[in-house]
């Protein structure tokens, strides 16, 4: 019964989150729940704090008020040891891959295992090659990060993120700067890893089309809170202007094209300062 309760609980639960940096409010009353086993997309225009939200979930920042629960634990109240124990259950893929540049592809993937487990080298080798095979880069094991393309670097980072068999995988803008083939590859990997490994995925992305093909549930952030949520089909059918602008990529709308500025005509008439 207790197990069933746990299953029904969200794996990440953001409750009435407020967060400000340097006096500027990033979130004001954000609520978001990530269902176990699902691919949850977090979308929104640039500067809405999507990456900041991931860092709050990972406990890198603490909320001004509100709570971020991961596996039922309030992340902000955890000690460093408890936080590290929590992070071992979560894998994170950074926007640029964040591979360790002085290690080869093989050593990058082996890195978390070497740090956290004492596996015999033959077992470790088998594990690393298995993860590299899963992302299609077993043949690149001996390459250095500088020799990889952007898409390859992200796939290696993905292999590294799954090598400890995490329960949750967090992707920060996994499609940014990739060619259409690499985007398709990453999208397919996110989906297949989620289904085959039975993990939960949180994907932060701008890419409405790509994320729409893989997400089970999506949140659209704007102005510090969730402005729309639902399945990709539900979001696509939304008629509110703020959602329409983002989904169709309109340059102007509720999110203005122009950064707030004084009246253009009056500014031009002003004398330039000496």
């Amino acid at each position: 019964m207790r197990g069933a309760d746990q299953e029904s609980q969200p794996i990440v639960d953001v409750q009435d989150l407020h967060y400000a940096i340097g006096g500027r409010a990033i979130f004001s009353g954000l609520n978001l729940r990530v269902r176990r086993g699902a691919i949850t997309a977090v979308m929104g225009p640039s500067g809405t704090g999507k990456t900041t939200l991931l860092r709050l979930i990972m406990g890198e920042h603490a909320p001004s008020s509100g709570r971020v629960l991961a596996f039922g634990e309030d992340v902000a109240t955890l000690s460093r040891e408890q936080l590290y124990a929590l992070r071992r259950r979560i894998g994170m893929l950074f926007q640029n891959g964040a591979l360790l540049t002085d290690l080869s592809v093989y050593d990058n993937v082996a890195f978390p295992v070497r740090e956290h487990a004492r596996l015999p080298e033959p077992v470790l080798r088998e594990l690393v090659l298995m993860k590299l095979q899963a992302v299609g880069l077993r043949g690149a094991a001996e390459l250095m990060p500088a020799e990889l393309s952007g898409g390859m670097a992200r796939r290696v980072a993905l292999a590294r993120a799954i090598v400890m068999d995490p329960e949750v995988l967090i992707y920060d803008e996994p499609f940014v700067g990739l060619d259409p083939i690499s985007m398709g590859v990453i999208g397919r990997l996110i989906e297949s890893l989620n289904r085959t490994l039975g993990i939960t995925s949180i994907v932060v992305s701008h890419d409405v089309h790509e994320i729409g093909t893989i997400a089970d549930y999506s949140y659209l952030l704007s102005g510090g809170s969730v402005v729309a949520e639902g399945s990709p089909a539900q979001l696509a059918a939304e008629q509110r202007e703020v959602v329409r602008q983002f989904m169709s990529g309109s340059p102007d709308g509720p999110v203005p094209f122009h950064y707030p500025a004084p009246d253009y005509y009056e500014q031009l008439l002003e004398q330039s300062p000496p």
């Binding site: 890198e60 590290y84 979560i90 964040a98 591979l99 978390p112 740090e115």
Partner: peptide, 21 residues
């Protein structure tokens, strides 16, 4: 540079203390 390219943050997220490593 490791800091600028998120390598230290990545270690921290992998529960590896960058100060130690």
């Amino acid at each position: 540079l490791m800091c600028a390219t998120d390598q230290l943050a990545a270690m921290d997220m992998m529960a590896v203390d960058p100060v130690r490593h």
